[in-house]
Design a binder for these strands. Sequence first.
RNA 1: GCCCGGGUGGCGGAAUGGCAGACGCGGCGGACUCAAAAUCCGCUGUCCGAAAGGGCGUGUGGGUUCGACUCCCACCCCGGGCACCA
Length: 953
Amino acid sequence: MTNLPPSGTGADLPPHRYNAALAQEIELRWQDRWDAEGTFEAPNPAGPLADADRLADRPKRFVLDMFPYPSGAGLHVGHPLGYIGTDVYGRFRRMMGENVLHSIGYDAFGLPAEQYAIDTGTHPRVRTEQNIEIMRRQLRRLGLAHDQRRSVATTDEAYYRWTQWIFLQIYNAWYDETKGQARPVAELEAELASGSRPTPDGRPWSQLSRTEQRALIDSHRLVYLSEAPVNWCPGLGTVLANEEVTADGRSDRGNYPVFKKRMRQWMMRITAYADRLLDDLDALDWPESIKTMQRNWIGRSHGANVSFASPAGAIRVFTTRPDTLFGATFMVLSPEHPMVGELTTADQAEAVAAYQREAAAKKDVDRQDESREKTGVFTGSYATNPVTGTEIPVWIADYVLMGYGTGAIMAVPSGDQRDFEFARRFGLPIVATQMPPDAWFEGHGTTPSVSCDTWPEAYVGEGTYVNSANDSLMLDGERTMVEAVALISAWLERNGVGEATITFRLRDWLFARQRYWGEPFPILWDDNDMPVAVPDHLLPVLLPPLEDFKPVAADPDDATSEPELPLGRVKEWAELTLDLGDGPRRYKRDLNVMPQWAGSCWYELRYLDPTNTQAFVDAEVERYWMGPQGNGHPGGVDLYVGGVEHAVLHLLYARFWHKVLFDLGHLSSWEPYHRLFNQGYIQAYAYTDGRGLNVEASEVIENPPGVWTHNGEPVTRVYGKMGKSLKNIVTPDEMCATYGADTLRLYEMSMGPFDASRPWSTRDVVGMSRFLQRVWRLFVDEETGRFQVVDAGVDGGADPATLAALHRTIAGVSADYDGLRFNTAVSKLIELVNHLTKADEPMVRSVAEPLTVMLSPLVPHLAEELWQRLGHTTTISYEPFPVADASLLVADTVEYAVQVKGKVRSRITVPADADDATVEAAALADDKIVDLLAGAAPRRVIVVKGSMVNIVP
RNA sequence: GCCCGGGUGGCGGAAUGGCAGACGCGGCGGACUCAAAAUCCGCUGUCCGAAAGGGCGUGUGGGUUCGACUCCCACCCCGGGCACCA
């Protein structure tokens, strides 16, 4: 695919030039040696990976990349950007004396391997293992300092044994609201049995049948069965979590339509943790944008529940604005609301049923189209507004969603734009509860009026309360919204018709998938059709071999289709006889598998202790690597780098599992990822021909600039993701072949800020290649191969300018590495090397050694090679990073720019220790400045220490 | 519509409120070469000028300041997220 010859090839080249062939030889040699010596194996404080000598008293640092999916297509140059960044950072911190844990594993269950298997007939395991091998080889070629012993895959039986174990921990736990934490269900059962906790209907525990007891316990579990509308995706043959459905109602994988369908499904009670998932964000060092996305997704709203009496009983609504209750002139129920049937009167029955049918047939996409006009139907019934006593009509409309709040609203058309539109459409009364400010009327070109007839839209905001009083409650007058809400909430509670409450947008996590390639549920069904956990000693529940793992192909648009579970086809696996302490009995296995997110919810913990067979992670090992670092610190990974696309999926689920495990006493940290950094993406240009088809990007020629042709045909340039379909893939393999891994690493780090997306440009890579050639030439004579670094004389050897440049570089590069500013670190190193090259005299050891150490995080193979040639026998990886000598950072003299009215007009050089008055005098004495001022006395002179003088004439 | 990012040479990008354009690519000129490639050296924001030098320049328009890419206000454009959430 490459159209470049390896760099530095040609007939009469200097024999010892640093070119692709030499780089390759050096790189492969050092990669072998690192493996052989276990150079990057990080010692644990306990267990099989313990090594007290190597642990010493070094501070720990856990650096983590987001768990990659081993794609069948192999890596392109965009994939390793983050891995190289964490590698540079990890190598730097190791040189700062820290015990750095950095590894990478494979999130290998999931839909892509299964879809590929369906397309090709290859078993997903075969394909997955091949892909992992390919990816391991590609990553190894980049020289990443990973601890290979810790590289796990979610598909390993020894791994998913613990995924299933954690699932059962969650299954066997309930959320104790009073304590605000999860506890084992055994404790719940003990409380119920002892009577310290009453049963819902008040009967003593012992009088409940065993089935009733189990049902009661099951209803509390953090993993539970729910009969509710779920996201059914016929195209994938499985149900999906809310987080896996895009805003336009399609699956995030495969982009198939998704339908709401009532089904019995396994859920995880993530909503129990909504408050903590929200509040604990404050303790995390994450980009504010990601925190905001999680906050929005959780969507905590403060408000009140209010009951409206109706012929069918109390209708409960949730509102964030109970203070506007006096303006509630009608109610709206979701078409799916369970009370609709009973509320509908005979003469409205037909219209209501028709509307319900219509709503049910709509895809979420259509239903969420905000621009369309409001629709709805009157049920024929009336409810009573609890504060006014007025009878108000009850409608159904699809702008009210069953999935949020109570599925019913009180409509306050004067204070809510949606209700306003609905009221106008159907001629329902609109009563103001607040008088908008005059400016609001002015802004709408009308005159202030308490009658809403002239209002062009609802008013939302602070305003004087009107029409809001009854015999026992008075809101009218000047008061803030907060105050009014408090007053009416208290009134509602006093009168038993409502109370202040909090509602979340977050829904429980639909956890089951009707697929093959995932962790089987460790759940059995007994002959009472009740679920039973597989006992620990029978884990893992292995995924059975299956010849035909295809889901039954359903029409992606057929909302009426039903899931068919592939595991159900393995009859001899799906049923079994087992003695769980009450004699041998027949059980059926649960046939669901877990979603792909399961394995990635805890993988960082397994990196810590990958070989442990007694526990998913040893407590001491977890405390060492993940434990809280002081007051208020939640613990967790020290640096977590990955793409922004996991903002609400993986990152929310993993936090949830981590918190459950913390509550159950298995972890010392209560957040998995303390510091999160989103790296940018590498994008690439692609080219389309006259027919709009993509042509092979590497064959496109640009000449003249801005004009592109492919085989002589003009093509147009577009910008997008690197991928097969755009025919613009560049692989790390071809870059390693053309230049070497060190050049590729350096180029990726130099392209731009770590968190910014940028376009790949193969043409630009040569710049980094030239730089490394200059570095090489400083050490090695290209013609003879002679090592030409000289040992320093008595005075240290380096001239003052070089010494100053070196220490300036040390200071700058340390700060840049630490701040993940790799691009500017690279340019500072280039500046230093350019300075040394221009000096045109042999480099002294006292410069060569710190330079080599500074280069090593970026170009570790080359640095190891130079380090060895400098006479060292051990790896450079643990050499201390140089420290800048502050005394060398200040020069004897310093140049000041002299500005007149903010424009640089001259330059002066003064002693570094000159005071402001001296600098000012020198500036005013400068010939050019004297000319410019033409004898006039300056009105003002500003001296900026060490930098510039600004003269205001 | 709401919430986040972001607009700097031909391109990627750099600049604690203090000399805009570091560093790299590309381009131009030169060295080496029979020649080319590779490599090395010099120049390279833009306009005027032979040069010295000067004018203009960080999306647009205002403002604060001795001084603004940087801070404030309004707007335009691009990317991302959310979106009938009561």
